[in-house]
């Protein structure tokens, strides 16, 4: 269970995250939406330790993550993928996975053995299979397509076996077809892995199709939370973000 309590962060006089409180149940799938500058990525950065909150708590199964370093938070079970695929360009897909498992097993500092370690292999294989990257194992990350780099980014987070997976715009920069393939993959992962997934997304068709729960942020505050139907009907959300298109869709 991930519980956010009174989370706030300001940059100068701008409140990027303003007293946000939310609960993410174990195994839930939640979309975070909102206009540009709503504070969605800041919210992720606070949870994962990239930014330190001014105030508030980030409780993961009763342990406060607020103010901890990213490696510490990752070890507690919060993984993330980035809006722009964040990978290791010179490593192959296979090496990336093996090295990530090494880090997760606290063997990143091992000097007396040779890479790869046999005990890291299974998890690396599983992650590559799960994300459909097994047939590209020997490709260096920099030579992968944009979509595969995004998948590798997610695989990097997933191979650490997180309890909570944060995906910052997993479909960013993709064409329509690739976008749906990616989101189907995310949905499949959520179903198979039974982990808590929170994702930021701008494509409302995707959000309303796959997310059972939606959080709407605006100017760093929570504008609304609820099911897709409730969000589509919420007047404040329609006015601030959705416009009439998605609302009309419901009316029809």
């Amino acid at each position: 269970m991930l519980e956010i309590r009174g989370l706030s962060k300001s940059f100068g006089g701008v409140k990027a995250t303003d007293n946000v409180s939310l609960d993410f149940a174990d195994g839930s799938l939640t979309a975070v939406i909102g206009p540009n500058g709503a504070g969605k990525s800041t919210f992720f950065n606070l949870i994962t330790g990239a930014l330190k909150p001014d105030s508030g708590q980030i409780m993961l199964n009763g342990v406060d993550m607020a103010g901890r370093t990213p490696p510490d938070i990752v070890r507690h079970g919060i993984g993330r993928a980035f809006q722009v695929a964040s990978i290791f360009p010179s490593l192959t897909v296979h090496e990336t996975m093996l090295a990530a498992v090494c880090a997760d097993q606290r063997r990143a500092g091992v000097l007396h053995r040779r890479f790869p370690l046999a005990e890291t292999r299974d998890r690396a294989e599983q992650a590559m299979e799960l994300l459909g990257l097994a047939n590209k194992r020997d490709r260096t990350a920099s030579t992968l397509s944009h979509g595969d780099q995004k998948l590798l980014d997610i695989a990097l987070a997933l191979v650490l076996e997180p309890k909570v997976l944060l995906l910052d715009e997993p479909t960013a920069g993709m064409g329509t077809e690739e976008r749906w393939r990616m989101i189907d993959k995310v949905y499949e992962l959520w179903e198979k892995q039974k982990i808590t997934v929170v994702f930021i997304e701008h494509d409302m068709d995707i959000v309303f199709k796959i997310a059972p729960e939606i959080v709407v942020l605006c100017y760093g505050r929570i504008l609304a939370t609820g099911t897709p139907d409730a969000i589509r009907r919420n007047e404040a959300v329609i006015e601030a973000y959705l416009g009439t298109e998605h609302h009309a869709g419901v009316a029809l």
Partner: peptide, 11 residues
Amino acid sequence: DNANRASFIGI
């Protein structure tokens, strides 16, 4: 390659 990403896998 990417020190920021390395810290997000626990390094």
